[in-house]
Design a protein around this nucleic acid. Structure first.
Lengths: 202, 202
DNA sequence: TGATTGTACATTGTTGACAACTGGTCTAGG
DNA sequence: CCTAGACCAGTTGTCAACAATGTACAATCA
């Protein structure tokens, strides 16, 4: 089987772009999104744009009012932010326990590859890409553990957490933390993996 | 301020209807949804229908494949179902602690009213309405505790849980359980409220 | 002067037609 | 009889025009 480049729907690309804009701070909380403007920017009609806006609204990145439009969501209260972190830890811990026994060499290759991208983006100081690789890393494991159901549950929480990272400078330990997770998973060391995970999510 | 009847957008009504259909089992897992058919059924064009489908997909009730369409999601594995219950308990517990000090008499009147609807629906054996009232009860408290942010996080989890209740017959204790929650909240008895909550979510 | 009503503009919500894609069926060739 | 390819019906994806709603500003009146 050839590693055929997978085709990505326009709609998904637009969603990705807007997510990046929000997480990177390009779009600040409270900023209003104009459907027509976005349609022009991406060279499509308003239909797909509405889809994307609806999607991001459901992910909690945007807030929409009837007949008024969408704007970037405000930051979470410290209280809710803490709850998000707690929930994310629980979900990923659960996933680790489910997945650790069925990870094979192919999986580790994929994880290594993602981590390499993470590292590369980090040294290029491209923090938007760093964030995407970071999310991709965890997402891979979530998908492997519980499939689309689990990812759908997990994704909005991560997005909402990420949005609130005002200091974009990820500590240099990012790579090391993820490497520690991979190592522990490879060694089937559940305890170590959970510990490394807990250190990574904060 | 008069208790003005709130106006509900068509889109929301359609979403509600489909959610009911799914939770009640009218639409079984795997059933395919046809946009045109739904549009005709609700007397609107396909646009709003697509919105609704996208929304329910994000809530986890439907699964959508590109260029193929949407169908009702399959039941969760026992593993994930257990995770959902755990997460929901944590979220609502957290919310209780946040909200218990700021609940006033007006809130309790609202909760009493919802519980009355619950009870009525129960004795009429209208379990779809029972479920809706049940959700409404908890939703009221979630909204009061953490606003839209918290509700958006919580809602998909509840929906996904509800979908998997195959035995639709809620035990007769439903009313009692919710009454116990109200009583404990009224007495500012955090410990008792959390206990009653834990008994109710399962 | 301050609040209120009327009006124009900008933006979202909705629609129906058209384009692109999927899955299955039929046919020709081996 | 079986497979490969082309075709076809049905469905989803996209678009541009139209209708409905909300917001902001200006004119009016107390």
């Amino acid at each position: 089987m050839l590693p055929n480049a997978k085709i990505v729907p326009i709609r998904d690309q637009i969603a990705d772009q807007l997510r990046s804009d929000i997480i990177s701070g390009e779009l600040a909380p409270g900023d209003k999104l104009n459907e027509q403007a976005l349609a022009t920017r991406f060279g499509v009609s308003r239909g797909p744009i509405r889809d994307v806006i609806l999607r991001l609204t459901k992910e909690g990145l945007l807030v929409t009012r009837n007949n008024v439009g969408a704007s970037v969501a405000e930051m979470l209260s410290a209280e809710l932010q803490q709850l998000m972190i707690d929930l994310r830890r629980r979900i990923e811990s659960h996933a680790f326990r489910m997945v650790i026994s069925k990870l094979n060499e192919e999986d580790f290759e994929a994880l290594d590859y993602i981590l390499a991208q993470f590292s590369e983006a980090f040294y290029e100081e491209n923090y938007t890409e760093v964030t995407k690789a970071d999310i991709e890393f965890h997402k891979y494991l979530m998908d492997r553990a519980g499939g689309a159901d689990l990812v759908n549950l997990w994704y909005p929480i991560v997005m909402r957490m990420r949005m609130n990272y005002k200091r974009i400078g990820t500590p240099q330990d990012g790579v090391r933390e993820h490497q520690a997770i991979i190592d522990a998973l490879r060694a089937k060391d559940t305890r170590g993996a959970l510990k490394a995970l807990k250190a990574n999510i904060r």
